[in-house]
Amino acid sequence: MTVRQLLAATDSAELTEWMAYERIDPFGEGRADLRAGIIASAAANHGFVQLTEPYQPSHFMPFLKREPEAPVLLDDPQKQSALILTAVFGRKV
């Protein structure tokens, strides 16, 4: 069924009911991404490596709108290198 056919067969009251229902119990791709993110974060947090901060479902939701992270730039190249090794590879220098 096309959108035009759906709108022709649905009156304003029914459409309003569906909109209210979606606010109470969301459905669609956004909700599917959240469900997948919950499963992915549970799998990522279950392991033998001790994480400093556990993964959240939002880490696995690529289309979630989020604030861009500002880069961390240090004056000392050795400290910058150590920060990168820790953040990316989990290695302590």
Score class of each variant (00 low, 15 high):
25 D>A: 14
52 T>W: 02
71 P>N: 11
15 L>D: 00
61 M>R: 09
41 S>Y: 06
26 P>D: 07
70 A>E: 11
22 E>D: 13
44 A>S: 04
58 S>L: 12
55 Y>D: 05
44 A>K: 02
86 T>E: 08
88 V>F: 00
83 L>V: 09
37 G>E: 06
64 L>F: 05
35 R>V: 13
6 L>E: 03
70 A>Y: 04
84 I>P: 00
90 G>I: 02
3 V>A: 03
22 E>K: 06
74 L>K: 12
65 K>P: 05
85 L>H: 06
43 A>N: 08
92 K>P: 00
56 Q>Y: 09
47 G>Q: 03
20 A>D: 15
20 A>H: 11
40 A>G: 08
36 A>Q: 10
51 L>H: 05
86 T>W: 07
57 P>T: 14
48 F>D: 03
21 Y>V: 10
33 D>N: 07
19 M>R: 15
2 T>W: 00
31 R>V: 04
53 E>F: 15
76 D>G: 13
81 S>N: 11
25 D>G: 04
79 K>E: 15
7 L>K: 08
39 I>D: 08
93 V>T: 11
28 G>Y: 02
81 S>W: 02
67 E>M: 15
45 N>K: 04
82 A>L: 12
5 Q>C: 04
93 V>Q: 11
16 T>R: 14
86 T>H: 10
87 A>H: 08
9 A>Y: 01
61 M>P: 01
91 R>G: 01
81 S>C: 09
11 D>S: 07
83 L>A: 13
63 F>D: 03
52 T>Y: 03
1 M>Q: 08
88 V>W: 00
26 P>M: 05
18 W>F: 14
17 E>C: 11
54 P>F: 14
62 P>A: 08
23 R>Q: 14
68 P>G: 07
42 A>M: 12
71 P>G: 08
35 R>M: 13
84 I>D: 02
29 E>I: 04
72 V>I: 15
52 T>M: 01
14 E>D: 09
7 L>Q: 02
14 E>C: 09
88 V>H: 04
39 I>C: 02
53 E>V: 15
68 P>C: 09
47 G>Y: 00
24 I>M: 14
61 M>I: 11
63 F>H: 01
37 G>Y: 06
36 A>W: 02
43 A>C: 06
10 T>I: 05
52 T>C: 01
77 P>W: 05
55 Y>I: 03
57 P>C: 06
58 S>T: 15
26 P>H: 08
91 R>Q: 06
40 A>Q: 12
35 R>Y: 08
52 T>D: 04
70 A>M: 12
13 A>C: 07
25 D>L: 12
8 A>G: 03
37 G>C: 12
30 G>S: 10
54 P>W: 14
91 R>D: 01
24 I>V: 15
46 H>N: 08
56 Q>I: 05
84 I>F: 00
10 T>H: 00
20 A>C: 14
21 Y>M: 12
6 L>H: 11
7 L>Y: 05
85 L>Y: 07
79 K>P: 00
36 A>C: 06
26 P>Y: 10
71 P>A: 14
37 G>M: 08
1 M>S: 12
40 A>W: 02
74 L>C: 10
38 I>F: 07
15 L>I: 04
20 A>W: 01
49 V>E: 09
83 L>K: 11
77 P>K: 09
23 R>I: 12
20 A>N: 15
38 I>K: 07
44 A>N: 04
23 R>W: 05
15 L>K: 03
33 D>R: 07
58 S>C: 14
92 K>V: 11
